[in-house]
Design a protein around this nucleic acid. Sequence first.
DNA 1: AATTTTAATCGACATTTGTATTTTATCTTG
DNA 2: CAAGATAAAATACAAATGTCGATTAAAATT
Lengths: 191, 191
Amino acid sequence: MMRQKNQENLDLRQRKTRHSLVEALAKLMEEHPFQELSVSDICRRAMVHRTTFYAHFTDKQELLRYMLQQMEQECISSCIPEGSGSPRQFFLTASRNALHFFRDRKALYRACLQSGADTEARLLEDAAAHQLYLRLSQPDFRQALPGSDPEIAARFYVGAMFSLIRWWLSSDTPVSEECLLENLERFIPNV
Amino acid sequence: MMRQKNQENLDLRQRKTRHSLVEALAKLMEEHPFQELSVSDICRRAMVHRTTFYAHFTDKQELLRYMLQQMEQECISSCIPEGSGSPRQFFLTASRNALHFFRDRKALYRACLQSGADTEARLLEDAAAHQLYLRLSQPDFRQALPGSDPEIAARFYVGAMFSLIRWWLSSDTPVSEECLLENLERFIPNV
DNA sequence: AATTTTAATCGACATTTGTATTTTATCTTG
DNA sequence: CAAGATAAAATACAAATGTCGATTAAAATT
């Protein structure tokens, strides 16, 4: 059942169904924690039959994952700086952009982090780590970080940044954005 | 209902019940992903009536959280180094200890990280961040990190370290433990 | 425009979840 | 050890979950 072609050349009906479900979930998550939402709730709001839901997703987690994967491209393109600076500049600019990206989606992101949905939220972290890895793997960056494994470095700094973002968004902005970024600059080696 | 005294001076029956449930969950998580476990499964294995389960925990997530909280003390005491060295030494030693702690509990920790249970797993990260914060707040450390907010610094480095641990444990040990720790040393400022 | 393909809907069902009420068994205290 | 307290079990129930097979509606293809 279900064609499930490569990516987005789905049947019109399927795209409409998925779109409705994503919309409904996003709306509902602004009102109630994800945990408390039932598949029935989502279907009711989306005006989609429950059996149709299960034809597309195995459960509500998978719907959320789908939703975040759609955000992924948007996240990367708005965070990764253009041009080529030093690894340090690259990371700092990407961090500032990421901070803004998540700040603008605070409600949704907090909802993910709370309600047992942050396995899904971590997809974005993985994507970010991969992007930094790609940059650090470039020859000019390799010689800037002699002896360091670019994959380990990418995981380290992206993990650190996402940890700060999580903390900053989940506690009710205990420090200013500038303060956070100023501190961040101190932790990044000057390469 | 339920006395729920301070901490562990519970009725014998309650302690027995909770112990059985934790045991059952730990066993089951080695066989199936947490997601697929039903409260009924856990109760069946624990030989505890389902209504009794709900008298102690609201859902299986809360049981898992309880289980991890019990690990928390053990984790802290086996990771936090004794004596007082530099912030750098403190962090590196704690990191090495943490790496071993989670390596020894790899099956359980991986199970938490996968199966939608890592909101709960992050409790340990929060506890670790708090420990580092306590150290960095001490006067002698403050002057070693001039101008840095100890809370931000703690979140940054603990987040980075847990990110590495997650990556190291979830991919099937792509690099050696020594390699990981050597790289880590390069990322920690010499203070 | 007609035909074929296939997704969405409908209705039904067994299982799980979460809760309430009553009864039974066990622990704690005097 | 006995009496009172209270946790566990038993039973029942409404709601949600996940999966059928069959029917209807809407796409894609000719």
